[in-house]
Simulated assay, not measured.
Amino acid sequence: MPVVRYGQPLNVMVAAKGHPYQRDPFMAMFDDLPGVACTLVEQPLAARLMNPDGMKGFDALVLYDMPGLDFGAADRPAYVEPDEAFKAGFLALLDRGIGVVALHHAIAGWPAWPEYAELLGGRFLYKPGPLLGSLRPDSGYRHDVVHTVEFADPGHPVVSGLPQSFALTDELYLFEVFEDLVTPLLRSGHAFTRDGFYSASQAVAGRMFSNEGWAHADGSNLVGWTKRARNSPLVYLQPGDGPSTYADPNYRRLIENAIRWAAAEARA
């Protein structure tokens, strides 16, 4: 049973919602972290806390949310612009240097705010649109891919204690990765080509598992990176679709390492 873990050395806020997820197995991954107290806050409340005052007392922020997309709109998904108060507060939080760990579908958040993609280091697009000055197609997805993850930077603390390569069965994305803005951390052995993925735009339109008529160039095999988001250390980990991944010991070690590294870098 979840309890309030008073007196832990690290306090972490975990933001979720905007994309379906199984709350109990997801939070079980955080409840098992030794010395870390994780508090789940779902959107839209989470956005009201992502500022220096709202996160006072927290050492790091985990993003597993996907705000800014309205899947109930006629032209779904409609893009919802974040209000100016949120943008100002979030940027002020990053200027303070809070450690951030972004997971899986968080890379699709706030699509109407271009700077958000640059802060995270990439973007999953649910429909074609402009990005970094050019028109990009909608992104691709594929569930239950068995693939091998390998270190791009074997000496980084986020991969400490992990085997040099390990297998995961998870959802992968054919998406926009700003490789020139990030420091590579993890790469996948999967082939990131159009034929191995399905169109996100067609899925939203009710044509699941289709890539008919969908044109997408080959993508990056980068599935984990670090970067600076203004003054904040940030880790992005693309894996994290569901319970089988949450329970994987190597994935859990990645999450723990990422949180500890982000929090430590923020304090440095």
Rank of each mutant, 00 (worst) to 15 (best):
A60F: 03
A74G: 11
Y21M: 10
Y236G: 00
D241C: 14
V14K: 07
F192H: 15
A215S: 08
Y141D: 01
A15V: 04
G18Q: 05
D138R: 07
L69P: 01
E171P: 10
E256P: 07
D59S: 09
F86T: 07
T245N: 05
A262N: 12
V145L: 15
W113A: 07
R253Y: 03
A112L: 13
G99D: 01
V177K: 00
H105P: 12
R260S: 04
L40R: 13
Y236F: 14
D195W: 04
A28Y: 11
P2H: 15
D248G: 11
W225N: 02
P163C: 07
A247V: 06
G97F: 02
A217N: 06
F175N: 01
R187P: 03
A203K: 11
Y198A: 06
P233G: 02
L61S: 08
A78M: 01
L254H: 07
F209M: 14
L120M: 15
G196S: 03
G161A: 05
D32P: 05
E150L: 07
F90S: 00
A28S: 14
A263M: 09
V101N: 04
P52E: 09
P44E: 02
P239C: 03
E150I: 06
D195V: 03
P128E: 05
Q8G: 07
A74L: 12
P52D: 14
V204A: 05
G109C: 13
V223I: 15
G219D: 00
D24M: 05
P239G: 02
T183Y: 01
S201V: 05
D195K: 10
G35T: 05
L168Q: 06
V4M: 09
H147M: 05
R96E: 13
R230G: 01
M27W: 06
S165Q: 14
E150A: 12
Q43C: 08
R76A: 15
H147L: 06
D75V: 01
A74I: 12
L103Y: 08
C38M: 01
H190P: 05
M29C: 10
V235F: 00
L125H: 10
A108F: 10
P2A: 14
A112G: 13
V80L: 15
V235N: 00
A152F: 12
T169Y: 08
F192E: 00
V101C: 01
V145S: 03
G240L: 04
K87M: 15
E212Q: 08
A112C: 12
